[in-house]
């Protein structure tokens, strides 16, 4: 299924199989038992997903298909019912210390200012206050919030809060970044700005990214590879597409190129059936 027409000049095609993958979900199944109910719910079934070091992978799928479950498993917040998770070859036990996680919902502490929120991870590590603040200020500048460190979350716009959350995640310098529809609550203009900024920051030191979204255009514009998930329950990857659009990319312009449109058509073709299935299921619930 992989498309190999052109190879982007910036880097060679991701060698997912050759090197030790940054993140390796092997045959992961997650079954939830609802208290009170007899039946259990299998959100993710026998899912296998590999992310190479430095690769930007997006996962798309219909709503309610267990995308977030995959991320929670990768972060170590959730133990899979069966299957293994490996991080740089080592089996994951407890929390994934190499990963940062950007949540879909608001994750800033409302009683802390932007700066105090950004440095909270350093605080946990016991970094001295002065050093933590200096690094926090630096990160605030990088995400364009240099002058707003004193603001509390409720005094910031949705976009500013997402920037602060991004800084909060990236200040820990994680090798893997897990992102759960981080920009889905933003308006389209702010969203494209944030996407471009994310690509800028990412291209500076090429971390491995697992990006979850329901927006196919966003997935194609950002990633090296797009993985399509089936409709839940029992979600698993059903298709994989290498995105060989040249980098650096401008997410608002790249959408108009014929290559992009062609990729979009191809992936959508695979996705469409699952989206319809997911829609029918959500109606029958």
């Amino acid at each position: 299924m992989a498309m190999t027409q052109t190879i982007s000049p910036a880097r060679s095609a991701p060698a997912a199989e050759a090197a030790v993958p940054a993140l390796d979900l092997d045959n992961v199944t997650c079954t939830f038992r609802t208290p009170g109910a007899k039946a259990s719910y299998t959100a993710v079934k026998e899912a296998t997903l590999r992310i190479a070091d430095g690769e930007f992978v997006s996962v798309v799928g219909p709503t309610g298909c267990g995308k977030s479950t995959l991320l929670n498993v990768s972060a170590g917040l959730l133990q899979p019912s069966s299957g293994t998770v490996r991080v740089y070859g080592e089996e994951l036990v407890g929390m994934n210390r190499k990963a940062g996680y950007m949540f879909q919902a608001e994750s800033l502490m409302p009683w802390r200012s932007a700066l105090d929120n950004v440095v909270v991870g350093l605080e946990y590590q016991g970094v001295p206050r002065a050093e933590a603040e200096a690094r926090g200020q630096d990160w605030l500048k990088r995400v364009g919030l240099g002058a707003h460190g004193h603001r509390y979350p409720h005094q910031m716009s949705g976009g500013m809060r997402k920037r602060a959350a991004l800084a909060q995640t990236l200040i820990m310098n994680p090798r893997i970044i897990l992102m759960d529809e981080p920009f889905s609550a933003l308006d389209i203009q702010t969203r494209q700005l944030m996407e471009n900024e994310l690509l800028d920051i990412w291209s500076a030191d090429r971390k491995s990214v697992l990006f979850i979204t329901h927006d196919l255009e966003e997935a194609i514009a950002l990633s090296d590879r797009v993985v399509v998930l089936s409709a839940g329950p029992g979600t698993h990857p059903i298709g994989e597409f290498v995105i060989d659009l040249p980098r650096p990319r401008d997410v608002s312009e790249i959408r108009l190129t014929p290559q992009f449109v062609q990729l979009h058509d191809q992936i959508w073709h695979t996705m469409k059936e699952e989206v319809l299935k997911g829609y029918v299921q959500s109606q029958n619930k």
């Binding site: 929670n72 972060a75 917040l77 929390m95 994934n96 210390r97 990963a99 940062g100 996680y101 949540f103 919902a105 608001e106 994750s107 502490m109 909270v120 991870g121 946990y124 590590q125 909060q168 995640t169 820990m172």
Partner: peptide, 15 residues
Amino acid sequence: VSPVLLANARVLGAN
């Protein structure tokens, strides 16, 4: 307490 806040703090390394 928002479960997201808790999860976020744990991911950031809180004991």
